[in-house]
């Protein structure tokens, strides 16, 4: 579904990604771990098309298309979803309105009819039931005055409604207490489908107790230096990242 080859990217002239190779198949959950500044967030931002990052080398194929050739909105409409580490507030616009506009933009691009507010309410209620949440966030302005936990929860709620093929979760666990973490992880698990994949980025293996990855990758200085199964995450938890550096030949 996703094939990243030798991906290099810079921000303001600094090279952050230095040759990423990664293949993600439908149904998979991949976890990318690494210390601060290793390029984890950059990787998902580049995949989502953030204009501040320049891809200088390499390719990304997504469902047979050249992902890098698409605008951010075209990527979103093709099913790429990024749960932001720092979700942005949009003042004066309710979450429900925002989400309906997003769903309708995606539906229109696929030749489907737009939802009117009443149809949309049904869709929304159904999704909320699936993940077992209430609608308390829906009539508040997008992320405005939300607590850290509410913001993260809101990202997952948007993901539930937008039904992505490829979900990119950027440190969705940061700033969450253990209960909130469980709630969010459970929702992510319920939303897994055989035809969709998840790429999550995190510092800590804690999240991986709840969202069990099929593959774990260690990112150091813009390269994937080691890949493995779930046990790799546990090893990282126990030993930290430093032991990998010399093995990987990274200073």
């Amino acid at each position: 579904m996703l094939e990243i080859k030798d991906l290099h990217a810079t921000v303001e002239g600094r090279e952050i990604l230095r040759g990423i190779d990664l293949t993600v198949r439908a149904g998979d959950v991949h976890a990318v771990m690494g210390p601060n500044g290793s390029g984890k967030s950059t990787l998902v931002q580049v995949l989502a098309g953030h204009p501040a990052y320049q891809v200088t080398q390499g390719s990304v194929a997504y469902l047979g298309e050249d992902l890098l050739d698409l605008d951010p909105e075209a990527r979103a409409r093709a099913g790429v979803f990024l749960a932001f580490q720092y979700p942005v507030a949009v003042r004066g616009i309710t979450n429900a309105y925002f989400l309906r506009s997003a769903v309708n933009a995606i539906r229109t691009s696929r030749g489907l009819e737009e939802y009117d507010p009443i149809d949309f309410l049904d869709v929304l209620q159904q999704k909320l039931r699936t993940i077992g949440w209430d609608d308390s966030l829906m009539n508040r302005p997008v992320n405005e005055g939300f607590s850290g936990g509410e913001k993260k929860r809101n990202e997952i709620l948007q993901m539930a409604v937008l039904e992505p093929r490829l979900a990119l979760l950027d440190e969705t666990d940061s700033g969450l207490d253990i209960d909130a973490l469980k709630t969010v992880a459970e929702a992510v698990n319920k939303l897994r489908r055989p035809d969709s994949a998840t790429l999550l980025v995190t510092h800590y293996q804690r999240l991986l107790n709840y969202i069990v990855p099929d593959h774990v990758h260690v990112l150091l200085d813009g390269r994937i230096v080691r890949s493995g199964g779930r046990e790799l995450a546990l090893e990282l938890e126990a030993r930290g990242y430093d032991w990998i550096r010399p093995e990987a030949g990274v200073a």
């Binding site: 953030h50 979103a76 949009v90 925002f98």
Partner: peptide
């Protein structure tokens, strides 16, 4: 970018942000 990542065009994003502001 946040709005575009959700599938909205830049123009729709600006119009939404401005209308929310007003």
């Amino acid at each position: 970018f946040y709005c575009r990542q959700r599938g909205l065009s830049t123009e729709d994003a600006v119009s939404m942000i401005v209308n929310g502001f007003c």
